[in-house]
Design a protein around this nucleic acid. Structure first.
Length: 559
RNA sequence: GCGCCUAUAGCUCAGCGGAUGAGAGCACCGGCCUCCGGAGCCGGGAGCGCAGGUUCGAGUCCUGCUAGGCGCACCA
């Protein structure tokens, strides 16, 4: 556990003990002790940590908060807590001022833990599956897929750091109607290219990339049309979706996203899992027949209405393989499932939650994060997109235009439920308007100083040999405090499933470093001070690297 | 009609299960380079959609309203 987290826990314990002692000596009757909340006050004048404990107790104890605070303080044992000053302020806050020594502990901590600094056991090794992107393997991925990729991958990084056992998974819908139409579309183009009548199926895919695929297929398998008709269709479907999956894998890898498992829907069919899950639900009385279709009584679990699992024509709806898939997830040992979906799928939440309960798993073990829309802009102008006309910006084009680092950062700087304005021109611009460069620049600057130090053979002492007490200007203290904050920030982001906290953390850290840089010189200072500042620099570099790695953004040594 | 998301500075957005004087970036204005990277630093103005409610205290919680986005299939 990090210094900051240990210290907080220690202070919380000390406060609890103080309350208990005060209660005994003052004769308070406390029905339930509130959890001690410590927060970092916005105003520096209010100290390093503050608690509203006295105010929370006031109703129970029936005394004014300030009176309670006084009593708590009288009984507070500050030994080993770095607390140097205690004040009562405002309506009854207890403000704590800490000595700097704990910050020096943080620097030593960072040095010894290296890239592990920031991690914690908060998640208690709980097995979590994060399923995201899962775009249909019938075409290029779009910008919401890209947002999902960035958010999902980073959330997985965050939760991993916070002590969860996280697995990234991509569900490939390669067995449904879309896949079939896609295969038929390829086949139609193939026939056209062979000089035959190739009729595109209704709701087929008219886009040019399908024709491109057909051309490639003609080279790879010139004798396709000599096979039986059924085989042709099946082959095109399989070949086409496999190819798109390979393409998606490559595109995502270029975006820095790698999945642990690519789960094929067709494997569920092959293994008879659809029938099995239907049988399972049927045995428990959750299914019924009506109008020739098989229905799932999802409304019994809070869904708006019941849903069809098998249509009257005998074909399962999308829901059936999906339920089978989630059943499979649990049976593979995952304790908690998180799915990241686009905004167009929120109508689907109710039935899936119902399915989870019908399968016998706890309601709260299944969680859905709905991302909101991305509005693409270019120089403030909306980029008009129309799928029908084949005009839309794909994930690949997005990466080509703005680059991986900027793209990821832009997707990660906003909360998942925020509608995102993404200005392509701004993201692509390598200028001061672009926040990602500001952060990377901080890292490059540190590297530059450390390079210089090495060239000049300047001695960089290890943290436990440096006179860290020399670090005491405001800029240095502010920087160290931000370094100390990383583990908590990661826990917060993990708990709330909100990667944007880490993006903001990075920006704030860079900001405090830049401020330090202009206020404090490193090289050329008196040796002890220079040594202490070098320790601070290295710690800052380490934390920047860790935080940027979480975001999947490169930490460059030069720019 | 029903459901989900959103409404905070000129623009884009933060604001942690309520809490001590509302923040950042961009844009605008004014300062800062004999010295480790000026892609930087320091300073300046302006804001919580509307109306109620809960509370010692509401940008934050509850209700209603208004506005915008998205979704409501025996499609996936």
């Amino acid at each position: 556990m990090s210094v900051a987290l240990k210290l907080q826990a220690k202070i919380q314990r000390a406060l609890v003990e103080a309350v208990e002692k005060a209660a005994t000596s003052e004769g308070w009757s406390i029905s339930e002790l509130p959890t001690v909340e410590l927060e970092i006050p916005r105003e520096k004048a209010h100290g390093d940590l503050a608690t509203n404990l006295a105010m929370q107790l006031s109703r129970d104890v029936k005394l004014a908060p300030r009176r309670i605070a006084e009593a708590i303080i009288r009984h507070l044992d500050t030994a080993g807590t770095f607390i140097e000053g205690v004040e009562i302020a405002g309506p009854g806050f207890i403000n704590l001022r800490l000595g700097n020594e704990w910050l020096y502990q943080v620097l030593r901590d960072i040095e010894s833990q290296g890239e592990a600094y920031g991690s914690s056991s908060f998640g208690q090794a709980k097995k979590v599956m994060l399923e995201f992107v899962s775009a249909n393997p019938v075409g290029p991925m779009n910008v919401v897929n890209a947002r999902a990729a960035a958010v999902g991958d980073t959330l997985a990084n965050i939760m991993h750091m916070a002590g969860f056992k996280v697995s990234r998974e991509y569900y490939v819908n390669d067995a449904g109607r879309q896949a079939r139409l896609f295969g038929l579309s390829i086949l139609a183009r193939y026939k056209e290219l062979a000089g035959m009548d190739g009729e595109l199926p209704e709701d087929g895919y008219p886009a040019p990339y399908v024709t491109e695929l057909a051309k490639i297929l003609r080279q790879e398998v010139p004798d396709l049309l000599e096979k039986p008709e059924e085989e042709q269709e099946a082959f095109c479907k399989r070949w086409g979706t496999d190819r798109m999956v390979a393409q998606q894998k490559a595109d995502l890898a270029a975006f820095g996203v790698e999945f642990d498992v690519w789960f094929r829907e067709r494997e569920l069919h092959k293994a008879g899992q659809l029938e099995k899950v239907i049988e399972f639900l049927d045995e428990r009385g959750f299914l019924y027949e009506q109008d020739g279709a098989l229905w799932f009584a999802s409304s019994r679990f809070g869904d708006d209405k019941d849903r069809v699992m098998v249509k009257s024509d005998g074909v399962p709806t999308y829901l059936t393989p999906d339920v089978a898939y989630h059943w499979d997830k649990y049976r593979r040992g995952f304790e908690h499932l998180i799915n990241i979906w686009g905004p167009d799928h929120h109508g689907y939440i109710g039935r899936m939650q119902a399915a989870i309960q019908a399968l016998g798993y706890p309601e709260d073990s299944f969680e859905i994060i709905i991302l909101q829309l991305v509005t693409l802009l270019r120089h403030g102008e909306k980029v008009r997109m129309s799928k029908r006309a084949g005009r839309f910006v794909s994930m690949t084009e997005l990466l080509d235009e703005v680059g991986k680092d900027a793209a990821r950062y832009f997707f990660l700087m906003r909360a998942p439920d925020s509608h995102l304005d993404f200005d392509l021109a701004l993201a692509a611009e390598q200028s001061q308007e672009n926040p990602v460069f500001y952060i990377q620049y901080a890292h490059a600057r540190i590297c530059s100083i450390l390079r210089q130090a090495e060239e000049d053979s300047v001695y960089c002492p290890p943290a436990d040999q440096a006179d860290l007490g020399l670090l005491r200007t405001e800029a240095e203290i502010d920087l160290m405090k931000q370094l100390a904050q990383l583990p908590e920030e990661i826990i917060l982001a993990a708990e709330r499933r909100e990667p944007h906290h880490i993006a903001r953390y990075c920006h704030e850290l860079a900001s405090r470093f830049h401020s330090f840089y202009t206020h404090c010189r490193v090289l050329g200072e008196e040796e002890a001070l220079q040594g202490a500042r070098l320790v601070l620099l290295k710690a800052t570099r380490q934390v920047l690297q860790t935080a940027l790695k979480i975001l999947g953004v490169v930490a460059p040594e030069k720019m």
